[in-house]
Structure formats: structure tokens, C-alpha cells
């Protein structure tokens, strides 16, 4: 199987494929290439079960079916939304020939600049802070890319997920608490990017004594890229190594990679943010 070409607007595609209806979710799917207690996925569909037993079933072209746990009447009483915009969003992107990065992103002069890090690595806080400085917000936590030809980043409608301290640092207002994650809230950036944007730069965030940037070039990029791919095993396990390798090479040849070190210090956050804004504004 080759990577499915996406001929239509990826934003339209994802919006259509993310549509949700309540119903009965099957216990299993055929031809799964990965199957554990939480996720079973084939080349065309998956079943995903959350920690609170919300069950998702997705099939390409047919959208999502969601089954609530017994005794639950409302989606908002569960961790439905948390996983809808995480694992489910990422898996739907993969199965439709799009590539999700574990990254938050902002728009800088008509291009997308992304920040990747492990959970807790500060990518949401950094992107939210930069949005407060006037850079349109592209996405939080997962960045969906269309990769047929150029590497294009897709702004999406996901809310931001920020801890209380990140809300304070960035000046963002909490919209509502996230069920099952006390201390974390959904928020929305006032300024959002519009259409798809070329992704030009990917920053790997690290903790440091001061704000520093180091460019990564050549084969080192190839070694680092897999850690930025969201649920990388999905793409790797679909059985087309050649297509995956073509994607890796194409991505690395088109996107600049950097290590960005910065202190995790609330006292210097505002000043550090301005330095980061200057760094990423470099064409």
C-alpha cells in the first residue's frame, strides 16, 4: 500500500472525518496490524477505548462512532474530548494519508513554525505565549501535515490544553476544565491562522540555562524526526517502508531543524519569549 494521496483540502477532509455520531462500537476489527487493549488499527479503520471506557470506532470515509460507558448520559462527563483531539485525531490523520506531528505551531510571516517535545516539554505554553505576542496560533499538541509535494501545515479547530501555571504565564483565559485532568484547562487563542501554510521550521525543545538555538543538519535530522511523529508506529506499521522512507527524506530536505533550549523559569518567561519570537522570525 502506498501513502494515500490527499487531493482535497486537508482541513475539509479532517473536519469531515472527525464528525461524531453516538452508536454501538464493534468489539474487534479485521486485519489489524496493531492490537492492544486500548487500540486496534488496520489500514482503513480503528477501535480506540479511553481510560474511562469511552469507545471510538472510525472507518475511512465514514466518520466516528462513539459509545459512552454504561451509566453515562453525556460526552462531557467523560474523557471523550481529551482523546478525540489526541489519539483519535492523530490516527484519523494517519489513515487518510496525512502526517501528524507531536507539535504545537504558530504562523510567522505566512509560514508555519512548529515546536515539538515530549509531553510536559513546554510546546503548548510556548505556542500560546507567542500567540499572545501576536503570532497567529496554528495548533496545539498535534500538527497535521499534508505531504504530497510541499510540506503543508494545517491549522485546526482544536482547543489548547494548558495547565494553570501556563495560563498565568501566557495570560490566556481558561474556557473550561479538562475532565480527568485536574489543573488543566481548555483555552482558545484569540488570533488563529487561516488556511494551510508551508512548514519551514521544526524546533525540538529542551531545557537550558538560557535561550539558545542550534541548527540540526543532514543525517542528524533523519535520526531526530521519528521522535516528532505522533504515534509514529502507525505509519511505520502500515507495511510500506518505502513510502515511509520517501516521506522522511522529503520532510528532512524541505524543513529546517533546530534545537531550542530555554529556561523553565516563570521569572524570565516574558523576556525569553521575546527572544524566541526574534529567533523564529528569521527567514
Amino acid at each position: 500500500m502506498s501513502v494515500q494521496e490527499v487531493s482535497h483540502d486537508p482541513a475539509v477532509l479532517m473536519k469531515r472525518e472527525m464528525r461524531v455520531r453516538l452508536g454501538i462500537v464493534p468489539d474487534k476489527i479485521a486485519d489489524a496490524f496493531f492490537d492492544d487493549q486500548a487500540l486496534a488499527i488496520s489500514k482503513t479503520e480503528f477501535i480506540f477505548v479511553t481510560l474511562e471506557d469511552v469507545r471510538f470506532h472510525y472507518r475511512v470515509g465514514q466518520g466516528l462512532t462513539v459509545q459512552l460507558p454504561e451509566g453515562t448520559d453525556s460526552l462531557t462527563e467523560t474523557d471523550f474530548e481529551l482523546f478525540l483531539w489526541g489519539t483519535v485525531f492523530g490516527a484519523i490523520a494517519w489513515l487518510n494519508g496525512l502526517v501528524p506531528l507531536h507539535a504545537s505551531a504558530v504562523e510567522v510571516n505566512g509560514r508555519a513554525v512548529a515546536f515539538t517535545a515530549d509531553s510536559g516539554g513546554g510546546k503548548s505554553t510556548l505556542a500560546a505565549g507567542l500567540a499572545r505576542l501576536g503570532l497567529p496560533h496554528v495548533c496545539d499538541d498535534t500538527l497535521v501535515l499534508a505531504t504530497a509535494g510541499s510540506i503543508m501545515a494545517m491549522p485546526d479547530g482544536k482547543p489548547l490544553k494548558l495547565w494553570d501555571d501556563a495560563l498565568l504565564l501566557t495570560g490566556m483565559e481558561a474556557e473550561r476544565p479538562i475532565q480527568s485532568m485536574p489543573g488543566k484547562h481548555y483555552a482558545n487563542a484569540a488570533l488563529k491562522a487561516g488556511g494551510t501554510l508551508p512548514l519551514t521550521d521544526l524546533y525540538f525543545l529542551e531545557r537550558g540555562e538560557s535561550v539558545e538555538v542550534e541548527q540540526i543538519t543532514g543525517a542528524r535530522k533523519l535520526a531526530m524526526l521519528p521522535e516528532a511523529l505522533y504515534r509514529n508506529f502507525v505509519h511505520a506499521a502500515r507495511g510500506d517502508r518505502s513510502a515511509h522512507e520517501q516521506f522522511l527524506l522529503g520532510f528532512c530536505s524541505q524543513v529546517r531543524f533546530w534545537k531550542l533550549r530555554r529556561p523553565f523559569d516563570s521569572r524570565t518567561f516574558s523576556a525569553d519569549l521575546l527572544k524566541v519570537k526574534d529567533i523564529i522570525a528569521t527567514p
Binding site: 543532514g218 543525517a219 535530522k221 533523519l222 517502508r241 522512507e245 527524506l249
Partner: peptide
Amino acid sequence: NCATEMDGELVMIHVDTGKFFSLK
């Protein structure tokens, strides 16, 4: 292999093993 020029290096990935090799 599949290969591409990347920042002045030629980076090749072996299609069977997935190992990559950089030439400069």
C-alpha cells in the same frame, strides 16, 4: 536505497533495512 540531498549531504536510506547513510 532512496536518497536525497540534505544540507550539503547526500542522505540515503536502505529500503530493506531502514538504515541510513550520509555521504559528504
